[in-house]
Simulated scan of single mutants.
Amino acid sequence: MGIEGKVALVTGGAQGIGLGIAKRLAADGAAIALVDLDQGKLDKAAAEVAEAGTRVTTFVADVANREAQSAAIDHTESELGGFDIMINNAGIAQVKPIAEITEADMDRIHAINVKGVLWGIQLAAARFKANGTRGKIISAASIAAHEGYAMLGAYCSSKFALRALTQVAAKEFANDGITVNAYCPGVVGTDMWVEIDERFAEITGARKGETFDQFVGSIALGRAQTPVDVAQLVSYLAGPDSDYMTGQCVIIDGGLVYR
């Protein structure tokens, strides 16, 4: 028994880790709603997800907008006939010395990485409770939710906050049979890490690729992470084998941060 026949909504699902998660959950038998900002990218991602033989729908929404997230959930239920799993995957990063972080920087990162996840948790839990569903809420944290990194102050602060929201929500919704967990990737070979590496190069004078290589060189398993690595953990968190697990922010980084 797994998640066959369940319905999962994945924010930030048009690329990177989000697309990897959507494809894995589709292979597990779930119907998938992809939510992102660009319809063209969503259409391409939906075609890839549909190769698993499952039903797929898309919805354009900015996760920082609570009403837009609510509309995405409405769309998911209307198009796919249910709603069982919420994947709060959408997020952004920023590389900047802490002395230079502006109010606008903090507002932008926390609007997406913190408020966006909070709205997702709130809205998913409310819908699960209304439907009598023992739902799963799973969010994208990071190794930066467990350890602060130089030049990533605003990003780390948002992921530490996400970890707190995960723990609090797990306690508050446990009596409703709703579990709330998060996954904490490390160095994943996606566009986000390309941007991080380029910004480090601009600030520190390192050659392009050098920062990425330095981080990868510290991974015990000796390679960068892939979206598939992350998706395998999310598959477990979305399924019944994790029913006794809640409030956890699970590190999956190949052996980089140890807690």
Rank of each mutant, 00 (worst) to 15 (best):
T58N: 13
L123C: 07
S70V: 02
Q248P: 02
P227E: 12
R259K: 12
D84Y: 00
K96S: 14
I3G: 04
I98P: 10
F200W: 05
F173K: 12
K208R: 10
V230H: 01
E100T: 11
G2C: 08
A8G: 08
M1A: 11
F173C: 09
Y149R: 15
P185Q: 13
V188M: 09
A124P: 02
D28M: 12
L152P: 00
I92C: 07
T166M: 11
V49N: 04
A170C: 05
V234W: 02
E195V: 08
L9D: 05
G254R: 11
F200H: 13
E67W: 13
R134I: 03
I3E: 06
D107G: 06
A238D: 02
E48N: 02
A170I: 08
T54P: 01
V216M: 09
G40C: 07
K6I: 03
G222H: 06
G53I: 02
A145F: 14
V117W: 03
D38K: 14
A93I: 13
F128C: 04
A145E: 09
L25N: 01
K115E: 09
L221S: 06
R207M: 11
L42S: 04
G189F: 04
Q15F: 11
M151W: 08
V257W: 01
R108T: 15
D28F: 04
G247M: 06
A27Q: 14
A220D: 14
T179Q: 10
A8M: 05
I32H: 03
T57L: 02
I85T: 09
V188S: 02
V117S: 13
V194C: 00
R66F: 04
Q232T: 07
A161F: 12
A46T: 12
S142Y: 08
H75L: 03
V188K: 01
G135R: 01
I109D: 03
G255R: 06
A22T: 10
L165Q: 11
A141M: 04
E67C: 08
F160Q: 02
G135L: 05
G222F: 10
A231V: 10
A72E: 14
A22C: 08
W119Y: 14
